[in-house]
Design a protein around this nucleic acid. Structure first.
Lengths: 389, 389
DNA sequence: TTGAAAGCGTTACCAG
DNA sequence: CTGGTAACGCTTTCAA
């Protein structure tokens, strides 16, 4: 192992100087600088992470922006679990996550959190502090009393007003709102990673799935499970504003365009409440899907389709391909009401995104610009094997 | 952050003493001991990983036992990649992997490597040293000259004769050979993790897939893709000694036992060479699968079945479900010669196994006894999304 | 612009 | 059996 000391000796300078060129702090004579650089190169110096982190007093702050855990049928709990797991694995205790929750249906809340991030305002809920620290999850902020001033070094930094050292975000909001965030992280130079959805128009690394391809796969699957004697296949999308969903529908359409096996009927309902969806749907289904060959539901809400079918008194439901392995969908899969579910591996998304960002922030590792998740096909038979995924 | 110093002060002893009770080295008066233990508990002491690893001079040695990268159609390259990736991520540079290659068809080679492990004999090939160190992969051992004695501290430990600090193994050999390994790791108390196959009769943690369930999923898939007008479905296993494969076949049988949809024909060929397999198969296929409804091949050798079909001049091959996403199979999937492939996520297996073991060895993290991989279903449509998996 | 030295929290060793 | 102290490699003052 080559140390700064070795480099210093080799270059005929002090370790202080080596450190200065290494981190570009302070002025260094151009000549000295190049000598040190040469030594660094020649010896193949690699910093020792442990020494670095031991010596740094710093506690790293990472802001995490997602909808609430309970929103969207509990979907967001999944990536959160992955993030949790990633941080647990990270052998580091000087890391604090500030969870900033927003409501995707109320963009004001998103903008507020962006604002808070840029001002470094503490979040009201901290879902976890200290990786490698199995205790202490939610709401640490509410009970700071019992650990006051045991120690010199920066304790209870969690509540400090500080711009974060990194940002983890699921930017499931309009482009305009996204742009505001992009502006902030650019201005403050905050290293960031987006997951679930891409942060539009920014170079921010993305961890997630290709929705168009997901739709293609859904196409093939409906092909496989549909009633062969029937001639119609339907694609149903709840809401017309989520770009991800529209792309899935497009992928599905693309698949069926390349096949003459069945007639494709596509339905994209305008944004509205769940019960309105069901009403709308039960009115339109019979015409849409005369012989009920198969249905693809582009988001996690397969249950709504089943409800509509029930309402129109259709028994012996058509083969159904859905999206997202939420508990509810797992149940429907198990009971045979849904035939196939496509999963975007939300937990793994969270895991990878957090892992990537943390390694960058703490250890200075580089980040890859894109990490596409596999498109997982889940049947009742392999459902259990996805238990912890 | 609570430090040993705090604990020492709190217990009224020196930090040396705290260290002694922490690591149970040296004698400590029972009374002192309990006082320290109390302090430890009370203050909630958590060791600082960075300080620990900085202070420890130790280089961790991990032995890795697998078949050669090129064996089994290149299969073993995949978990090896995962292991590589896991170690790269690990923010640690004091870790050396000794790759001990064996030939699963010649158990003597396995036993030799077990012996070598127990004697701590250096491996002849080191596929990688130093996690967090992007350079240097294979065969570091062949060119030790250029990095001689730059530094005090234990350099070139790679070639040291030492029993490893951990063992990563894919025990794809007979039970007897496995037992020999189990005996060794028990005797030397070497922390170990098995992947791909379970290390029989040991409590060693396992990372891999449930083969029986894999067979079940294959059953469902053949059901989905088979020619509906045909009445026969076949399961073909090459070799009769690999327990994993037999279990897959059993799972498949189990699925079809629960269905009256088709007649199941099962074929388990005795161990022999590839060309013999093809000959055997082309003779028996017509009787086995009269109307060619669908075929399941329990291992990665789908190509052999296709070859046999070609030989008997059968065109318009039957729907085929295969196993393992090797490059060859990916190609067959893409060209439509195979309809579905089930993947056991070998890369992820390697990643998880290595990650678990390394965290245990280096950071003292606990290991879970079992980590089952999801049973992945791969079609030509989602094939690309598995690129880096 | 540079060098020297004091930590960071552990471990390992040596003297009592 | 116990206390003291020198590393480990890096960052961060503080003087020169």
């Amino acid at each position: 192992m080559v140390t700064v000391k070795d480099v210093a000796r080799h270059a005929g300078v002090s370790i202080g100087t080596v450190d200065r060129v290494l981190h570009e702090r302070g002025r260094v004579a151009e000549e000295t600088r190049s000598r040190v650089l040469a030594a660094l190169e020649e010896l193949g110096y690699q910093p020792n992470v442990h020494a670095r982190n031991l010596s740094r007093k710093k506690t790293y702050l990472i802001d995490l922006m997602t909808p609430a855990q309970d929103a969207d049928g509990g979907y967001w709990r999944l990536p959160l679990n992955g993030i949790h797991r990633a941080l647990e694995r990270l052998p580091v205790q000087n890391l604090v996550i500030r969870h900033r929750v927003f409501d995707r249906h109320d963009e004001r809340t998103f903008r507020e959190q962006v604002e808070a991030t840029s001002l470094g305002i503490p979040a009201d809920s901290q879902f976890q502090r200290a990786a490698g620290n199995t205790r202490a999850h939610v709401q640490e902020a509410t009970a700071p009393a019992d650990r006051a001033g045991h120690q010199a070094g920066g304790s209870s930094l969690e509540y400090e007003r500080r711009v974060p050292d990194g940002l983890l975000v699921a930017p499931v909001v309009s482009r305009e709102a996204q742009d505001q965030l992009t502006e902030i992280i650019t201005r403050h130079q905050i290293p960031a990673v987006s997951f679930d959805s891409r942060l539009h128009g920014s170079g921010v690394p993305f961890v997630g799935q290709d929705p168009f391809q997901g739709g293609m796969v859904a196409g093939r699957l409906t092909h496989m499970v549909r009633r062969p004697e029937c001639r119609s296949v339907a694609s149903i999308t709840f809401g017309d504003s989520d770009e991800h969903l529209l792309q899935r529908a497009a992928g599905f359409r693309n698949y069926w365009d390349g096949t003459s096996d069945a007639r494709l009927a596509e339905l994209i309902l305008a944004d509205q409440g769940d019960s309105a969806y069901v009403g709308d749907l039960s009115r339109r289904l019979p015409a849409l899907l005369p012989d009920f060959g198969a249905v693809f539901v582009t988001n996690a809400a397969s249950a709504l389709v089943l409800e509509a079918l029930d309402r129109i008194g259709f028994s012996g439901h058509p083969p159904l391909v859905g999206y997202d392995l939420l508990p509810q969908n797992a149940e429907l899969l198990r009971s045979g009401r849904i035939d196939v579910v496509i999963s975007q591996k939300p937990e793994q998304q969270g895991y990878e995104a957090a892992s990537m960002l943390a390694h960058h922030v703490v250890f200075g590792a580089s980040m890859q610009s894109e990490m596409l998740m596999p498109i997982e096909i889940v049947l009742s038979e392999n459902l259990d094997s996805f238990a912890g995924t």
